[in-house]
Design a protein around this nucleic acid. Structure first.
Lengths: 207, 207
DNA sequence: GTCATATTCAAACAAACGTAAGAACTATAT
DNA sequence: ATATAGTTCTTACGTTTGTTTGAATATGAC
């Protein structure tokens, strides 16, 4: 079930789709460009995924599942150790997992990173597919920020969290470009990046 | 030359294109959807603008010109008053003009705002058109930050400025949505938003 | 080997795309 | 009124799009 030829083509499609969707967006990517790079037949997409939109959904789901899981686990970990979390700890739980997951994706890491950026800026109909998969972390982290910064309204925390995500996603999207913060994917570098982002955002959250 | 019927259709096209490009991106927007909403003939696009890409360029140019001009003027103003600018002043010069220009665009303000967000995430070939028009502010502001924060490398200031733009652009894109920072376009509200963004970013820039 | 099932393939579908050509119409100037 | 230039319209070209169909091939069970 994990290494027969059908799974090869199914996964090849998923990987190429991830890269092309990341580079050109949903509308800018044709199924023919995907199957051409994946070296599979055109019908394979509809056979394995049903439609272009469901293919997109599959790409989102693969990334979102592990990212959200990683974030919630890390948050839970911090909360188990200590009842009153600092803003820095919450940010760390939010930022470090996606950075590490993206890092550990090997060849896919860059496309994976940029795909996350794409998701937030697709037209509403497509974006909704993505937001739905990523939404699982929203409430928990807003609650955590609310406990840590009780003087701010829920609305203010919401837009601040949204801007924090914008910063995280932009950092991922620009990875390895000139002047970008992320320049390689070694664990030490990624940890340093996480720290810099936490510092960059922490005082903003408190402001 | 400013109010005959041909300029009406030319401008109607530009306005509708701005909105649809903002909502659906370059690839996701068809000329036929533009001319349909603008209630003009299909050929009018190629007659007045030459091609879809040049139409996009025209939309970019209209916004970018005034935004960059506003930013550079405000920066120059601050520098005339005072040789050693604070990070807050530089940020104010960077952030306030686009907010005010977008505010003063009347009906177009929201689409205008979201279009700016689109520009940064289009595929490279399209994005290049936009970056070229907006790039005019980059050097001046990097220099300003360099003087104000001499301990940071040019590279570090570059990605911090990039993240600041990400925050600004996200704020504009999300305007008037639930929980967004921008909730109306009154001058007082916009000034308050600018202040909040400056505070949010200032300590990050220094971190 | 035989059958059923799963997967790939070539071919075609209707629809939508950007662009172009030429006729029709409008406005301006002489 | 006539000629000229500017603008709009209809029509159509050649591609490309996502999806479907049915035949061909591979895979696994008995």
């Amino acid at each position: 079930m994990t290494s027969n030829s059908s799974n090869d083509t199914k996964e090849k499609i998923l990987n190429v789709a991830e890269r092309l969707f990341a580079e050109n967006g949903f509308a800018g990517t044709s199924l023919r460009s995907i199957i051409s790079e994946a070296e599979v037949n055109l019908s394979a997409v509809n056979y394995h995924y049903g439609s272009k939109e469901e293919l997109f959904h599959a790409v989102v789901a693969r990334i979102a599942k592990s990212v959200v899981k990683g974030q919630l686990e890390k948050l839970g970990q911090f909360e188990a150790d200590n009842n009153n979390l600092t803003v820095e700890e919450i940010l760390e739980a939010f930022i470090a997992p996606p950075l590490q997951i993206v890092l550990n994706s090997g060849d896919r890491s860059l496309h994976c990173a940029r795909f996350m950026g794409r998701c937030r800026v697709e037209p509403d109909s497509i974006r909704e597919i993505a937001e739905q998969e990523f939404r699982g972390n929203q409430k928990a982290f807003l609650d955590a920020f609310g406990r840590s910064l009780p003087d701010f309204s829920r609305t203010e925390l919401a837009w601040k969290l949204d801007l924090a995500i914008a910063v995280l996603v932009r950092t991922l999207s620009e990875a390895k470009k000139p002047n970008a913060l992320i320049q390689d994917t070694s664990p030490e570098h990624i940890q340093a990046v996480a720290s810099k982002l936490v510092s960059f955002l922490a005082s903003g959250l408190r402001s």
